[in-house]
Design a protein around this nucleic acid. Structure first.
Lengths: 358, 358
DNA sequence: GTGAAAGCGCTAACAA
DNA sequence: TTGTTAGCGCTTTCAC
């Protein structure tokens, strides 16, 4: 097949070039339901009934309408429909960074549930930009979407502070049980404890923590889990073993690891609160000549698919990503169906996945 | 700060639990422009004028309106506005897999340009599901979005086959210059050639190709670039060195590498058409005891941020992701502004990034 | 079973 | 400068 492809057909210039002249005709200015009705010799009401699958239409009439729709290529103008029905059947999902693979699977879970219930799910990348964050909530306020699921801790914090709790949204992964906003997440405190206890069981006493911003509740919970696990093991946590980062990038993890290793009496193990961070940490350790897990053990958090692929494969806390997403979607749908109902908060179980990095 | 966090405030149960009772009151059934007008003692037209920043409103009147808007917390119902103005100011971006980091940066480029021009960009994960793919184009047909940018080769192929060229969309990365759909991408043929020539220059003669599905034009172009580069070097390409995958997952790359290495006379170098694949390849090679780059050299494609973080850092073809996205957005905006104009296809330069894997 | 007509909330002519 | 009014395209009573 590729063999039959003439080289001439392959683009070979690196400059802008005009495309083929064969621009097809633009569609005729789009039809309205009235024109279909005329075509079919019925009223707009009947066309509408057919389009919406109402029962009270004679089969013959229905067929006539369907034929007219087919022939004309008519599509409902949902803008009009939505105005009339006062709903858009659009759900928004806000993520802090689409580049972070942790969110991908959650998003799939949301999408599948949304779809089953006749909703479209669209993704918004908040990119840690406060202006953007707010603008997505505005989409909600202005009725362009029926509801939203927010996975971005920064956005969630901001929204919680703005009395947005009356808006139809739910928080996922980051949340505040006190705020009256439905949420789903895991028990971050226990999960962090589990990670640290695993390191402890491996004989580590000097355990570092690479955390994100403690402005986020999940970061505080994980930090507390880490601290308490150490304390319970009779270890006094050392301030110098802890770092707070405002990014979950690989690079951030790499440089944090380098900093951590510079001190005398550096940790023999590092717990990073995200797999992306942990992968960066492993890279950073390698850069300063440390071998994982022999010199320094590393445990991550999330269990993204990449975690099993790197060298050494990453020991990490697995979050039930798909279920997190599905649950979030169901919570939102519940809230939409019954705005007055108290929607519960949900915690899902996590799991320690032991691989070679620790 | 974390210290002051009482343990009781941390969630510690793994079961669903009711949220706080402090459910705030739902918003009063939302206001219309008419109520604001009444509040301000003006007509709806005047309110509309103020809202849309028209000049011909007396400052005093404007202030009165603004005050009423503020006091009432009114927000435009964009559903109504959009019906009236016949545009949604929403742009869709379709990606095959949000989990693939290659798309993240492109998406940012699109978003920033869209935003500058007063559009929202929302992401759609097509997930290689034909039903879903089509449904997103339907969003376009039904006027819920003004335009779309498609990054998914499968969706692009399908759309090209369905006379969708009249719809306001542009193709990014995968495209067909003949179809009259604006596009932006790189010169895949030359880029693949560059990758192979680098391997050749390093002394490799047995060079494997791990490609995606040759149904995609980009895959055929890269394959052709690979074949021609070999031929020009006086090497007869061996069928057994080539594999076609229908996934770009890490796992797919890992198992493909294992298969490739099983044969006698296995390649001493592998060119994978995506970094995710290449990272999987490195992992797969490690599993069968091969060391990169000493036993087998690997070059990838895309230059995602992870490429520099893995061990060994990946030699790859860098695509100008941000510019790809920005250009795609500008092309789309052009098409929206002037539907009848011929929008050009654009090819952007790529770059070979040499790291340690080859 | 089908049609006529009201109206969703907004913008933009057109009038005043 | 401001108000009145006619739709945008659809769904949905309410008649027939």
């Amino acid at each position: 097949m590729a063999k039959s492809l003439s080289k001439a057909a392959l683009a070979t210039s690196s400059k802008a070039r005009p495309q083929s002249e064969a621009q097809p005709p633009r569609p005729v200015e789009s039809l309205s339901i009235a024109q279909v009705a005329e075509q079919a010799g019925v009223s707009v009401a009947t066309v509408s009934r057919v389009l919406n699958g109402h029962e009270n239409v004679r089969p013959a009439t229905r067929d006539r309408v369907l034929a007219a729709v087919d022939a004309s290529g008519y599509r409902v103008n949902e803008l009009a429909r939505n105005l009339r029905t006062a709903e858009s059947r659009l759900l928004l999902t806000m993520v802090p960074d689409v580049g972070n693979p942790f969110y991908a699977e959650i998003v799939r879970g949301i999408d599948s549930v949304a779809r089953q219930h006749g909703y479209f799910m669209l993704l918004c990348d908040t990119g840690a930009d406060p202006g953007r964050e707010r603008s997505y909530f505005d989409l909600l306020r202005r009725r362009r979407a029926d509801g939203a699921i927010c996975l971005d801790p920064a956005t969630i914090q901001q929204a919680l502070g703005e009395a947005s709790s009356a808006l139809p949204w739910v928080a996922c992964c980051e949340f505040d049980p006190e705020m009256g906003v439905p949420y789903v997440g895991i028990d971050n405190y226990r999960a962090a404890g589990d990670a640290v206890r695993h390191l402890l069981a491996r004989g580590h006493r000097r355990i570092g923590l690479i955390n994100s911003d403690v402005d986020y509740l999940y970061a505080r919970q994980r930090q507390q889990g880490y601290l308490d696990a150490l304390t319970e093991a009779g270890i006094t946590p050392d301030e110098r073993w802890r770092m707070n980062l405002n990014s979950l990038d690989y690079e951030a993890g790499a440089s944090a690891a380098a900093v951590l290793m510079q001190q005398p009496d550096a940790p023999s193990a590092i717990f990073a609160v995200s797999d992306t961070l942990a992968i960066g940490v492993i890279h950073g350790l390698r850069n300063v000549g440390k071998h994982v897990p022999d010199d320094v053990a590393v445990v991550g958090f999330d269990d993204i698919s990449l975690a099993a692929q790197i060298d050494p494969p990453l020991t990490t806390i697995a979050q039930p990503m798909r279920e997190l997403g599905e649950t979030a979607a169901r919570l939102l749908l519940q809230r939409l169906a019954n705005p007055l109902m108290n929607v519960p908060g949900v915690l899902l179980p996590h799991r320690l996945v032991i691989r070679r990095s620790a």
